[in-house]
Every structure is written in C-alpha cells, then in structure tokens.
C-alpha cells in the first residue's frame, strides 16, 4: 500500500454509488465525486507528490447521463455540467476530485474508451452492475503518460459528519 494511492470514502457514499448503478441499470450511471485532496489545499507543501496526497470523497453529485447518439453504451458530462459540479463543490467548500460510473454487465475495469477520454489526477470509480445487482467497485487514476490506469485503494472511513 505504500505506493498505491488511496481514496477515503464513507460507507454511506459507497452504498449511494452502488444504488445509483442499480437504479439506472441496464444503462450507465455517472456522477461527480466531491471532496478534498491535500495536494490542492492552499498552503500545502508544493513539493509533495500529487499522487501521495491524501484524498477524501465527502459528497456525491449524481448526474443525468447526457449520451450523444453513439451506438455504444457510454456516458458523457458536458463542460457546462462540469462547471456546475465545480460550483456546487465550491459552495460546500470542496473540489471535484473525480467521477464515478457504472459498467452494466461488464467488469469494474476501465475500457479503452475510458482511457482515451480520461483526465489525469481525477479518481475514476467504476462499479460493475451484473443483471441489475451492483458488484465490484474499483477506483483508478490515469497514468502521467496517458498509457493506462493505476488502481487506487478504496478505504472506507467512518467519521462524524463534516
């Protein structure tokens, strides 16, 4: 675990992501992960490696799937909605630190399409939904060279309300 980045999230939010995936099955769900990353906190050590920064997911922003006319099952979030998510996050004193989506009847591993469209730094949580029932949940970060994703640990944190 020393080198693998880890995100912290509450069990309540994990259940919400799983429920969103079940609710939109057989279609994909998607949403924003709002939280804090010690690497972007003002005054934090600028020499600290961003990948070793502590990241905590504190809220979710479920989004409507604004799919275009692709024949494949995909999700997209427009720049306007990204801006709206950032604004909502700021109102709660948080940042958009990643995105979640479901893979209906597919494993919780990023697809090639996911990789081709990914941004660095964000956490990408994927929940597999098999026959309507949520299964594995994983989290990933795009590598600096855009050639793949590295897995992130997901740690369930029990904590008082913020």
């Amino acid at each position: 675990m020393a080198d693998e980045p880890t995100i912290w999230i509450s069990g309540r939010l994990v259940e919400k992501i799983r429920a969103h995936g079940a609710e939109t099955y057989p279609h994909e769900c998607c949403g924003a992960l709002l939280g804090r990353d010690s690497g972007v906190v003002a005054g934090s050590d600028p020499n600290k490696d961003a990948l070793n920064a502590e990241r905590e997911i504190l809220e979710l922003l479920p989004l409507v799937n604004r799919r275009d006319d692709s024949p494949h099952n995909r999700f997209s979030v427009t720049a306007d909605d990204v801006r709206a998510a950032e604004k909502a996050a700021r109102e709660h004193g948080l940042d958009v630190v990643g995105w979640y989506h479901s893979h209906p009847d597919h494993p919780a591993r990023p697809s090639q399409y996911d990789r081709d469209h990914a941004w660095p730094w964000y956490s990408y949580i994927i929940v597999s939904v098999q026959k309507g029932a949520p299964q594995d949940m994983t989290s990933w970060r795009l590598t600096d060279n855009r050639e793949g994703f590295s897995p992130e640990g997901i740690e369930i944190r029990h904590r008082a309300a913020v």
Binding site: H27, R67, H72, N73, W119
Partner: peptide
C-alpha cells in the same frame, strides 16, 4: 468534459429522470 463507457455494448443509454444534483 468527461466521457467513458463500455465498448461493444449496444444498448442505448437514455437520459435519466433523476434531477441534476
């Protein structure tokens, strides 16, 4: 803007009914 999804998967994804946020 953010995009992703599963390839080779032919069901269409409808716009959901749930409100934004």
């Amino acid at each position: 803007s953010i995009a992703g999804g599963v390839e080779g998967y032919n069901r269409h994804c409808e716009r959901g009914e749930e409100p934004l946020f």
